[in-house]
Structure formats: C-alpha cells, structure tokens
Design a protein around this nucleic acid. Structure first.
Lengths: 186, 186
DNA sequence: GGGGCACGATAACAATTGTTAACAAATAAC
DNA sequence: GTTATTTGTTAACAATTGTTATCGTGCCCC
C-alpha cells in the first residue's frame, strides 16, 4: 500500500482564481471515495477534513486537515489508479478545488515548485516518523496527552471517536482515559 | 524531535574507495552515540545495525539496517547538532565509513544525486506512513504477523527483544504471542 | 572450564484495553 | 417541535498486555 496524502505548501490561492473553484460542503461530505480515481485536489479555506480507509468494516482515520492545508491522493492523482482512502469533511467546510489539468498549469506557473515539493515531502516524512515513534514509545494515555499538547486543535474540533481511531484505540477506551485524567486533575 | 535516519540508495562503493574506508566491528558496537554529533555516514557491506534512543532508561529501537543500506543521522550530520539516537551493530559487521567532508565530494561526483535523494526521501516517507497506519489498524499480534510476512529477515536476524521494541510491545508479550501462534499452528 | 552476560520462556498478578450493550446528550433532519 | 442520527459515557466481562521475577540456555571472555 502506498500512502501519500499531502498538504501543498501555503500559497495565495486568490491570485490563481482562474484555475481554482471555491466550493462549500456540509459536514460529513465525501470528497473522494476509497476505490475511486482522484480527479481533484483540495485546499481548505475554512473547516476541516479527515482521511480514512475501511478496515474490515471499520473506519480507520489517519489524518486531519484544517485551514490553509491542501490534500489529495497524490498517488491516485498521478497514476490514475483507485484511491486507497476516502477524504471527507468533518465540519461544514469551504474549499478551493482544483482539477488535475489545472493543477498541471499551476505547477508551471509557480516559481520554485520543485523545491516547495521537496520541502513538503521532507516535512511529511518527519511527521510520519514522529507518529510511528510516538506509538512505539508511548501507551495510549501518553499519546493522548501528547496530542493534547502538540495538536490541541484536533482535540477541540474533531469528534472523539475519530481521535480514538487516530490514536489506535477504541472510542470506549479513549473515553475511559479522559475520565481517568479528569479524576486525577481534581 | 526530528527523525531522519536514511538509507542512501545502492551505489557501487568500490569505485569510490579513495573516499570511503572499510571497517569491521564486533556485535553490539556503538557507531554513533545519542547526544554526540555525527561525523560519519555508514554503509552496510555485511551484517546489520539498529537505530535506537533512550526513553526513561529503556531502549526504543525504531529501525534496522542490513546489507546494501546506508545509514546516518542526516540531521545531526547537516546541522552539527547532537544526534537524537544511537546507531549500533547487532551482528559482527563490515561497513564502509565515509566522513562528512568526503561525502560532500562524493555528492558532487555522483550524477543525478538530487533525484536519487528525492526518490529516497519519498520512499522513506511511504515507509513511515505505512508503519504508522499499521499501528493504528493492527494489534500487536497482527503487526508481528505482518512483519513476518513482509520482513522475515528482521525476524530471522534480529534478537527478539529488539523486535518487540520495534513492534511497540514488551519482550514478554512478544514471547507470549509467538507461543500462542505456535500452539495454534499445531 | 568457570563466571558473567545476553537472550528467551514462563508464571503470577496488576493494569489496561477490547467488546458489547444500554443509556444520555447533543445535533441534524423533517 | 418531534424524530432520527450522531456522539459520548458507563458498566460488565473477556482478552490482552505490562510488570516483576525466576529459570534455563547459549555464548563470549578470561
């Protein structure tokens, strides 16, 4: 399996308005369905998204996107093969949508795109490496505390059962961990 | 924390013998100690290495390297800052060692080094992403079975307690999982 | 070949997590 | 406003994992 969701570096999208379309969607709207071929890339203007795949009938959420982040299935986008995951809105969201064809134009228009992309991939590599290392060195409670410290916006805006999935535990277990931490705090 | 061990793509090291030195080390030899600044990069000719860091007095092993793979702390190497992890031999090993200065020369001599590096980083990103996703979708037993299927050489050559650490569980638990799988097989 | 060390299996017990189900509370849909 | 749906909490029980300790084996070193 190849995983490669990708947040395109911050750009001033307004100036490329001839190539991108602004779209508003309600909460829980699927933008790309697992198994379909990606034809668009998205950039979050307002709201948030999650990326997930089906594992024996259960959602596994492995990434969240918020304002000023871009997301697409690069692999499906480039290869034309079915995407291995779905992209879905969590909150009602406003997005810039760009088609594959227009993105190719855009790439030629942006100076230093290669370098942007290189930096971006290096950043993502470090992100995943840290996630992996967090899992082998911390237990679920510690991972939750780490997430609270490093990404409080995720805790604040993402429904708890998606956070549980992201932490690799069940919603019930996360609820218990929160309960335990609350009791300790008092 | 920044994580960036890196296996340089396969190269014919013999032809660069004026820049690299061949060194043999016994098992359990530390090549780079956590906290020290990296001055060398290594390439495994024979044997295997592990990369680990100290977490509250306990080893956490998060990567293994075998024949024809290169390893260094790129970050420490580039920035001159202390390395966040140690590199240590598991088996008696023969390595090609290259100094920072000579690597810079080498980089200029290798045609298409940038592209090699780009590919390499993309590969590593996918590797870490898969490791992370494996952790949130599988339990320890499933992860062990996956490791057996995808990296049997790790199971074969790496001491079990390092494998346990890599899987994010205790040696005792891994021993139980193996015992359970053996009993099921009969 | 004796002594230490690394490695792995197992036992006993505590702690955590998964599973299933029932029940609130909040939100969305009509 | 009433009805569904989604989300979160809690309980009860099973299963798994962590912790600590003991034991045995194999290996290296002197």
């Amino acid at each position: 399996m190849r995983n490669d969701t990708s947040s395109v570096s911050t750009l001033n999208w307004e100036q490329y308005s001839h190539l991108v379309e602004e779209v508003s969607v309600p909460a829980r709207t699927v933008l790309l369905r697992e198994g379909d071929v990606a034809t668009n890339a998205y950039f979050v203007k307002k709201g948030c998204l999650r990326v997930w795949f089906n594992n024996d009938g259960k959602d596994v959420t492995f990434q969240f996107f918020f304002e000023d982040q871009g997301v697409s299935s690069i692999e499906s986008f480039r290869s034309g093969k079915p995407s291995l995951f779905s992209i879905e809105s969590i909150e009602p969201s406003t997005l810039w949508v760009i088609s594959k064809i227009n993105l190719d134009v855009l790439i030629r228009e942006i100076p230093g795109y290669q370098e942007l992309m290189q930096d971006h991939i290096l950043q993502r590599m470090n992100h995943y490496a840290r996630l992996f290392m967090s899992h082998i060195k911390h237990n679920p409670e510690e991972r939750y505390l780490e997430l609270m410290a490093e990404s409080p916006h995720i805790i604040r805006r993402v429904p708890q059962h998606y956070v549980a999935s992201y932490l690799g535990i069940t919603p019930v277990s996360l609820s218990r961990i929160r309960n335990k931490l609350m009791r300790q705090k008092k």
